[in-house]
Simulated assay, not measured.
Amino acid sequence: MNHDGFELGLDDINNAGVYSVTNDDIAPLSAAMRDAGLRVATIDLQGCIDKRTLVARIAAQLDFPQTFGGNWDALLDCLRDLSWLQANGYALFFSDADGLKAGAEKDFETLLDVLDDASTSWGKDDVPFWAFVALRD
């Protein structure tokens, strides 16, 4: 992840990235992101302990095209595009990620890398892309 503890600074696109938060942080952060004019989506990861379920939940929540391939490369491609969800920026919240981290640590780490790559890609176009992954600690 890019950052752990943080002062958001929503007005600075350089602050966009991948952050670790708690489930209690999701509601106030979602409100702040909506107030900043960003498209907000929450992906519930409770009970998610494998890549297949993870990718399916993201695809469903973000209305990925039916041609979505269901693999890491396709996930990154869709997260870099999101043309069907036009917005001034994006904030994705992944609630209850502890089970995924414990049950599929490699997939959890790959997810973080994909989110970081997507944020970097959007940043090159001056579009903020934030990802918040909720963990207990």
Rank of each mutant, 00 (worst) to 15 (best):
L111P: 11
L82V: 14
D113E: 13
A131R: 05
C78A: 14
S95C: 02
A74S: 15
D117T: 13
K106N: 14
T120G: 04
K101G: 08
D117W: 10
S119A: 14
G99Y: 00
G70E: 08
S83V: 08
L82Q: 13
L82C: 13
G123L: 01
W84Y: 15
T110M: 11
F129W: 07
G70N: 10
L92P: 06
A118I: 10
D125M: 07
D113F: 07
S95D: 02
W130F: 14
L100F: 09
G70F: 07
A87T: 12
W130N: 01
R80F: 03
T120S: 06
D116S: 14
W122F: 11
F94I: 05
F129N: 05
A91C: 04
N88W: 05
A102K: 13
A91I: 03
L112A: 07
V127I: 14
S83E: 08
S121V: 11
D98L: 00
D98F: 01
W72H: 10
Y90E: 03
S83G: 11
L76K: 08
D81H: 12
W130L: 03
C78D: 13
G99E: 01
L92V: 04
L76S: 08
N71I: 11
S119W: 02
L85Q: 10
A74R: 06
A97S: 12
W130T: 10
A118K: 01
W72R: 10
W130R: 03
P128T: 02
D116R: 11
G123D: 03
G123S: 04
L75D: 06
A102W: 11
A97K: 00
G123R: 01
G103T: 09
E105T: 15
V127W: 01
S121M: 05
L79K: 06
D98V: 08
N88E: 13
D113R: 10
G69P: 11
L75A: 09
T110D: 06
W72T: 14
L85F: 07
A97G: 12
G99T: 08
G89L: 01
F132P: 02
L92Y: 08
F94H: 01
